[in-house]
Design a protein around this nucleic acid. Sequence first.
DNA 1: ACCTGAACACCGTTCAAGT
DNA 2: ACCTGAACACCGTTCAAGT
Lengths: 206, 206
Amino acid sequence: MNAKTNSSYHHGNLKEELISESLKMVESGGIASITLRELTNRLGTSRTALYRHFVSKEELLQEVIQAGFEKLDTYVFSTLDSDLDLTLKLHDVGKAYIDFAIKNPNLYRMIFGHELKEQREENCDINEREDAPGFHKLVDIIIDAQNANILKKDDAFMQATVMWSMLHGLSNLLIDGHVHIVDNIDTLFELSFKTLISGIALDLSE
Amino acid sequence: MNAKTNSSYHHGNLKEELISESLKMVESGGIASITLRELTNRLGTSRTALYRHFVSKEELLQEVIQAGFEKLDTYVFSTLDSDLDLTLKLHDVGKAYIDFAIKNPNLYRMIFGHELKEQREENCDINEREDAPGFHKLVDIIIDAQNANILKKDDAFMQATVMWSMLHGLSNLLIDGHVHIVDNIDTLFELSFKTLISGIALDLSE
DNA sequence: ACCTGAACACCGTTCAAGT
DNA sequence: ACCTGAACACCGTTCAAGT
């Protein structure tokens, strides 16, 4: 939307525009490129208008981060084929996760790199937390796979955390340029997933 | 060192003091707490003195990051018992890595979170890079374990990268507060390591 | 629910002039 | 190889006064 063509600058959805424009700025230039002057200039508003919707820049960033998590969640799970074999489901979840990080490195860095504020200290029950819907979908797949005798019957939350660790670590190493070995990222991901499933130790049956 | 008691302010090792004081500031307050004004005040120097040793704040931060990587490397490998079983060696390397991240969360975040500049574009051969000595020690252990028929004979660089991914991901999730499930971090690490070695899939022999 | 315009403290960086 | 002191552009934030 161009400010010049928008005669009624009292558009009314400024809050959403501030968040979505911030998302664009993060993805193209990283979190440091978000300044309130540049942000409000892009939307054609005054610099002080932002404070009608957010108490501070930090509060805006928290909402941008939340929107980023939702984008990640949607990307990873929305295209998941529900008819797939459970192991393949886990594979595709992992692949999509890495894909998202590689395609949106600055956004990925922001949602995990920027310190997030605790909204409710008391609400520590993982089953009632709303901030990790994707994680719970992963746990559900793992529980299904345990019941189908595909996975070991260890703690499903922990197994999901182990898989998430691998994905998160690999994503970070890749987008931060710490992996120099591989010309083919796919090969590295496939070895990672194979290791997650069956380990790096030599199997006696091989 | 107190500036008042230091009559010869031309101490001569200002560069090292700037780096080590920056390390202290990162560890206590995070990377954002490093401002040149506060940093030079602490050392009792003028604000402009820094520019005798670094072309910019960014160049100082790069050296702080390098010092941080060396601290991590030393912590992980210096106490490693060379007489250990190779699998136990991998276990202890992993445990020490996670320990370091938990004990120095702000430093860990900085050395991996802050964009690092490429010093030499052309030097892409992993075997000659000096910026990842710890990684090469890990690769060596893995090669030894492959030769001892303990690990699968996949690409050792990739196996090391997979293990590093797991450690790096787990470290980040822990220090950023994304893991809510576990009261006992040790239990989570042990399951992670067990998964790295033998996978999460149900073994037929069990 | 926005606007203008001015101000504030803080930041990294630069410069002129000293020793 | 440092110092003092002033200045610059940029930043988030606040305020007074409008519509």
